[in-house]
Simulated scan of single mutants.
Amino acid sequence: MRIGFVGLGNMGGRMSARITGAGSPVLGFDVLPDNVTAAGATPAASIEEVTDGSDIVLLSLPDSRAVEDVVLTGVLPRARSGQIVVDLSTASPESTTRLHELLGARGAAYLDAGVSGGAAAAEKGALTLMVGGSAEVLEQARPVLELFSGSIFHCGPSGSGHVVKLLNNFLNAIALSATAEVMVAGKKAGLDLDVLLAVLNAGSGVNFATLNRFPKIVHGDYLRGGLTNTLMLKDVNLYVELVARLGVVSPNSSGPLASFGLARALGYADEISNTVVDALGDLSGGVRLHSGGASS
């Protein structure tokens, strides 16, 4: 199966590197050409060239607008029967189902495959994939997807993968923003932050952020390379739109919306979302959890 990849940034580049590292060539396109070669892919001159030269086209793009632009202008006009397009972005489920229908009319298949685990899991080939679309098509794509993932879940029909991704990212956003607030409070209270984290991780306050993020952040390592504050805010807004359509009340969305909105407003828009703790610290008297500068 010939593999194409469009969008070789923070996540796409790492996924492509896993594929090429396993000995499978990738035909790649990115708005920044250096990203293609850095990911070990063969540069393509256009999205159309990737589509023409691939049996499976992987997409890793920042939002639904970018996905629609790539698919509608570059992929769809050249799509053919039997071809598989896999969207690894975090996108609107409504947009996803529309693209699924359009590609299906040309005989091509479309899978929405939200990813979880961040840059570290991508580098290890241990991402979790939540996939919507045909189960049969997923089995055809599985050998490629397994090159950069540790767990693959079929979540249901088209759009289901992106719905599950939004639910997951909302909980991730709550855990990160709430833990950031707690850690700033712990710092101002004069606590040993390593001890505080040990207590949280042994108690009922444990979450992904306390286990995997803040043990590094408190020593100045922000784990750069993952989701930015801008993209986290985008994901929470997509979640709010989703639950509004479903008729589900969302009193808990105000916290992460405020936290990541503040981070954007205070100059951390394009920084990794872990820097939300610095934004909260800025408004709490210039608090930093560590004494040195942030490591890259």
Rank of each mutant, 00 (worst) to 15 (best):
45 A>K: 11
62 P>Q: 09
69 D>G: 08
51 T>F: 01
56 I>G: 07
23 G>H: 09
35 N>C: 14
67 V>Y: 10
58 L>C: 13
20 T>G: 13
49 E>A: 15
51 T>Q: 08
60 S>E: 06
29 F>D: 09
20 T>Q: 12
26 V>N: 06
19 I>L: 13
40 G>M: 11
56 I>R: 02
31 V>Y: 05
65 R>S: 08
54 S>G: 11
31 V>K: 14
37 T>Q: 11
46 S>W: 01
46 S>E: 09
33 P>A: 14
19 I>R: 05
37 T>A: 13
35 N>E: 13
19 I>H: 14
31 V>L: 15
54 S>C: 10
33 P>W: 00
70 V>M: 01
61 L>G: 05
25 P>A: 15
57 V>R: 02
68 E>R: 13
57 V>H: 03
37 T>V: 14
58 L>G: 01
30 D>V: 03
28 G>I: 07
48 E>Q: 14
72 L>H: 02
21 G>C: 12
57 V>D: 06
31 V>D: 12
32 L>V: 13
61 L>C: 00
59 L>W: 05
57 V>F: 07
27 L>S: 07
53 G>C: 12
66 A>I: 03
28 G>Y: 05
28 G>T: 05
43 P>S: 12
46 S>A: 12
56 I>D: 05
24 S>K: 14
21 G>T: 10
38 A>F: 00
30 D>N: 12
26 V>S: 12
46 S>Y: 00
62 P>I: 05
33 P>G: 01
71 V>S: 01
52 D>R: 14
22 A>H: 07
26 V>L: 13
70 V>T: 06
61 L>H: 07
21 G>L: 09
52 D>N: 09
52 D>E: 08
67 V>Q: 01
25 P>G: 12
19 I>T: 00
67 V>S: 00
56 I>Y: 02
29 F>E: 08
37 T>S: 15
71 V>M: 03
40 G>W: 05
61 L>K: 02
40 G>K: 08
68 E>Y: 04
45 A>T: 09
66 A>K: 01
35 N>K: 06
23 G>R: 08
34 D>S: 14
59 L>V: 06
21 G>E: 10
47 I>F: 01
53 G>N: 11
43 P>C: 11
44 A>C: 15
47 I>S: 04
19 I>V: 15
36 V>C: 04
43 P>I: 04
36 V>F: 04
25 P>L: 13
65 R>M: 00
57 V>I: 10
19 I>N: 07
24 S>E: 14
42 T>G: 14
47 I>A: 05
55 D>H: 08
58 L>N: 00
55 D>V: 10
66 A>G: 04
34 D>N: 06
71 V>I: 11
39 A>Q: 10
67 V>N: 01
22 A>M: 01
33 P>D: 08
65 R>T: 05
45 A>G: 15
48 E>P: 13
41 A>S: 15
70 V>K: 01
65 R>E: 04
31 V>W: 02
71 V>Y: 02
43 P>A: 14
59 L>G: 09
68 E>F: 02
65 R>A: 14
53 G>T: 08
23 G>S: 10
